[in-house]
Design a protein around this nucleic acid. Structure first.
Lengths: 136, 136
DNA sequence: CTAGGTGCTGGAGTGCACTCCAGGTCAAGA
DNA sequence: TCTTGACCTGGAGTGCACTCCAGCACCTAG
């Protein structure tokens, strides 16, 4: 698999893949006769996992640290687990925060609907007091 | 309330508040005799709401658009509601994605625990097949 | 055998969202 | 009155995460 195929399958751009290799997020790919990078399916799985870490808000530095540990093999299992556990905690917090904001948004959307309908403002105002935000 | 108090209460830095005013995210504050910005509690509520939008992944451009609509008053209620509805959809998607990754992380943490204990690799491997990721 | 598509490198450029700084003004307490 | 701390402005700098580009090599189909 050449870099173009991997780009298509992973959803990353060719430039991004080379950038990831440059900074060490993915291992240096072996080359074919013409100097072109050759990838296998394992790399695709690794990139997919990196993508999940990224999609859940893990920055590039932490992903790099994780990639580095992974390169060290079984000896780093404990540290990798610790990183994942910490990250798990953050993801859980994010879910909680998003869920809370979801209900604030629902309240506000509701309030706007009522205001658009020229409806009564009093219940909206209570709603405003409850969420801590008015019609903004 | 001067800018330092607002910074403390909102959790933003003084620089960020001035930056927000510069780009139009918050209205230009009236000044006191010495040319210093004076804020009231309503501004704090607005900033808190902006912060929720930001914390749920709304970029500065969209926050600016929302702020701009807000400045237009009641006439923009419908458009603001539409923005919030779209954003609500994104937040719901984010929650779904995070929740999915949470279980991937749980599986992986579990797998690592077993590997650290020198336990059997077969169940871990099935787990790996299920989540689409091995020990990485 | 040549044209087009893909790949390579090193380095510059981009967009976001701040963050910091120099050099100044102003106000309130000792 | 003097000092200290908070505030002001315009503009430069930062960190992240890519993204793009020039100029070149290579390989394959026609």
């Amino acid at each position: 698999m050449l870099i173009g195929d991997l780009a298509e399958k992973s959803g990353l751009s060719v430039d991004t893949l080379r950038y990831y290799e440059k900074i060490g997020l993915i291992p240096k790919a072996p080359r074919d006769g013409g100097g072109r990078r050759v990838y296998d399916a394992a790399m695709l799985r690794w990139i997919d996992f990196l993508d999940r870490l990224k999609a859940t808000g893990m920055g590039i530095k932490d992903r790099l640290r994780y990639a580095d540990l992974r390169g060290k093999g079984a000896a780093s299992l404990g540290l990798r687990r610790q990183m994942l556990e910490r990250h798990r905690g953050k993801v859980a917090e994010d879910i909680a925060r998003l869920t809370e904001v979801l209900s604030v948004l629902d309240d506000k959307i509701d309030l706007y609907r009522k205001m658009e309908a020229g409806g009564p403002v009093d219940p909206s105002f209570e709603n405003c007091a409850r969420t801590g935000h008015g019609a903004q």
